[in-house]
């Protein structure tokens, strides 16, 4: 009986050893900034969330930016597709993907934030040249917006690294989020042709393939 008690005691010791923190995960670093506030309850809210995501330049920011684009892993829900401005295709000497989808867009985010690692980023949306067509009952919206991606260095100097128009089609998903399913890109006549940085996001997308 004494041997039995001894073995049970040793068994209890084993269980205690398992609870000594050996299996405790490491405490993560506290986010340096509060969690990003994202909002996808309206097409313009989703566009502003993309701006917040790009400005954060982090994995978290990438998540916020990409959530505004429809991700689809089945044929029952539409996915994100971007159509290039024909002139961008003609000018590009490399490979042009036949379908620029959600996965490709992930590269764009990484590529953009690597262009000026020390700068602050903003994705500025402005009204386009057409009237918004938003159907809140059906959950489909078609809008046009002018965009600019502007970076600011520590001295406050700004640089436009992308400029253009986007004809956007939104779809309200199962979680009531307005997400972009179609992005038809085109150039902005006001872009400075002498500034190599002032190209469309479509051109930046093509450039991001070599990143």
């Amino acid at each position: 009986m004494a041997a039995l008690r001894l073995r049970l005691a040793l068994l209890a010791g084993l269980v205690a050893a398992a609870g000594c923190g050996y299996f405790r995960p490491t405490e993560p670093e506290i986010p340096t900034s509060p969690p990003l506030r994202s909002n996808y309850s309206h097409p313009d809210s989703s566009l502003e969330s993309m701006n917040i995501g790009l400005g954060d330049k982090s994995t978290q920011g990438s998540g916020v930016y990409m959530t505004a684009l429809a991700e689809s892993i089945s044929t029952s829900t539409p996915g994100f597709h971007q159509l290039f401005w024909p002139e961008d295709i003609v000018d590009w000497s490399g490979v042009v993907p036949s379908d620029w989808n959600w996965s490709f867009e992930l590269r764009l985010y990484s590529y953009l934030i690597d262009l000026r690692p020390l700068d602050t980023y903003r994705l500025i949306w402005a009204d386009g040249q057409t009237t918004d067509d938003i159907d809140f009952v059906v959950g489909v919206a078609q809008i046009q917006r002018r965009y600019r991606v502007v970076t600011y260095n520590t001295d406050g100097d700004s640089t436009i690294i992308a400029i253009g128009f986007a004809d956007l089609t939104f779809y309200r998903d199962a979680q009531s989020r307005w997400v972009i399913t179609r992005w038809a890109d085109r150039s902005d006549p006001e872009a400075d042709p002498g500034d190599q940085d002032q190209v469309t996001l479509g051109r930046r997308r093509l450039q991001s393939q070599s990143n």
């Binding site: 490491t26 670093e29 986010p31 969690p35 994995t59």
Partner: peptide
């Protein structure tokens, strides 16, 4: 548990 502050949102 992602360790770095930049990826803890997941």
């Amino acid at each position: 548990v992602n360790i770095a502050a930049t990826s803890t949102s997941a």
